[in-house]
Write a protein that binds this DNA or RNA. Sequence first.
DNA 1: CATATTGTTCAGTTTATCTGAACTCTCAAC
DNA 2: GTTGAGAGTTCAGATAAACTGAACAATATG
Lengths: 307, 307
Amino acid sequence: MAPAVLHLNTQQLEYLVAVADASTWAEAAASLGVTQSALSQGLSQLERRIGVPLFDRTGRRRVLHPGAGPVLRYARRVLGETHDLARWARAVGAGEAGQLRVGMIDLAAVGPFGPIVQRFRRERPNVELHLAVAPSAVLGEQVLAGELSLAVIVEPSPNRGDLDLLPLWRDDLGLYAPEGQPAGPPATWGPWVTFPATSHTRRLIGRRLAEAGAGFEVVAESHQPEVLRSMVALGLGWTVLPVAQAEAAPNPLRRAQPEPLMSRQLVVARRFGAAPDAAADTLVGHLLERAAELRGPTPEGRHPVLP
Amino acid sequence: MAPAVLHLNTQQLEYLVAVADASTWAEAAASLGVTQSALSQGLSQLERRIGVPLFDRTGRRRVLHPGAGPVLRYARRVLGETHDLARWARAVGAGEAGQLRVGMIDLAAVGPFGPIVQRFRRERPNVELHLAVAPSAVLGEQVLAGELSLAVIVEPSPNRGDLDLLPLWRDDLGLYAPEGQPAGPPATWGPWVTFPATSHTRRLIGRRLAEAGAGFEVVAESHQPEVLRSMVALGLGWTVLPVAQAEAAPNPLRRAQPEPLMSRQLVVARRFGAAPDAAADTLVGHLLERAAELRGPTPEGRHPVLP
DNA sequence: CATATTGTTCAGTTTATCTGAACTCTCAAC
DNA sequence: GTTGAGAGTTCAGATAAACTGAACAATATG
């Protein structure tokens, strides 16, 4: 007769608690915004489902049976937890709770966008924020796989169409040669130390060098800008790096030519058709604001070097 | 949009947990004995109600979103409690749990039926058993009010019709006179010390004395047999008492005539239309067994004095 | 005794939930 | 490629649950 598991619903539990708390059923029904009839039928149903008499029937009137204590306690517990869940759901809807997994390429994470993440973490302590730093290609895959809600990456050369890309920041890359090798005509540049073949930036650099008429013989690779910088300093080869990374505090490289060789577009990537995520929306908003702030005070067309 | 309170039901929570535990939704659906379709629709419904994305949609496939952790934990908690409730309900159905409030008149509680109650308490520790000792009239009212599940009382003279009475035991009452006053013709008996006017037994005694042609001038009253006994011993008046109580160990009275004057019927009283109560049924069964046991070895028509 | 209050019961309607079938995607095999 | 199996969704229709409104029964209250 009874199914293997009890199939109850929260509103019948509400009926029970309301009846226990109110002095009359009519009052309880009113407080719930239903008719007496619904209350009466709902409680009969609940009693039938649990299979334990919950009420004493004196004549036509039903009063809560004291032996129903465990059921009432159960109802209160479940309703309490349900209430908590609803509160949590509201907070998630407002972007004030939940989980947020964010990816950033190294430059973004340690550059001016890192503090944005820290601020977000501070301002929304109930959002469980996780930051992953990795190359653009890796992060792009993770966004697609749903492992990340969003990532700040280098714009993929052929946009695969299933990522929603939002321009964030245009980033200058300079040309760096070993000490004492002057930048002659492009044909004389190289050999190169640069990012691994999977890297978006490497692809961009390759394309730019071809355009300029330079060769692109790669003699050493690393994902880490610091490693590339040391290699150049040691005279292993030339490189093209974001100026912010090449010319950072300890042992900065000196540009082989004053003008940036090229630039790359950093974007915020999200998956098309991803579930709405208020927390992610908020963080993206902050990132865009920060980018506008950085861009703002400088004349049109020029980009300040990232601090 | 969302109602003030979340209206969830346990089966959708089961769907969620099943999906979290199974490797495919088809498997989860099979384990629950429903179609994939039902599972899919049920989970969509659940997601809509909670208002928080629970799944990552990659193409058409949905996988549980890690941010749904709190919902999953909620579901597991609620299902756990529901499971406990179901177990409790089964136990109550078998009379092995729940609450049982029993009333007994003093003679029954301290007589041979008291140990039955104790045994029941020992054998079913999960049944919360409460024993109330009071006069029949009081207990009858409490049974009617649903405060007691059953009571062992003196059969009410006019049965009010709303009590279900089960004969348990016929109890002899003797005639007791102050020391030195022989039992002459009934017209010479008295004056009397006896139970208060509300007492069933007093009414029975009154009727019997009238039948015998004796007066019934009452000079003192008490619900306590010991008090009545002392009064008789002190010479205040005559009384009619259950022989078990009048002739109990310390300071027993001596009967004014060897034959019992009358008898009264003890019954198990329950309310008509009371909720089925397996624990009460069991206890009544034990009481009847005990009564049969006491009656059994004696010849027909005679009743042993209660020990 | 009339009358308001309270709760139940009964039709009828609305809403949920299920099944079964058609359909979309993905993945892997040929 | 293309073909087919597996997984999941969507849709229409059936079934069951829950609600409303009205009629009714039982209790208080004047």
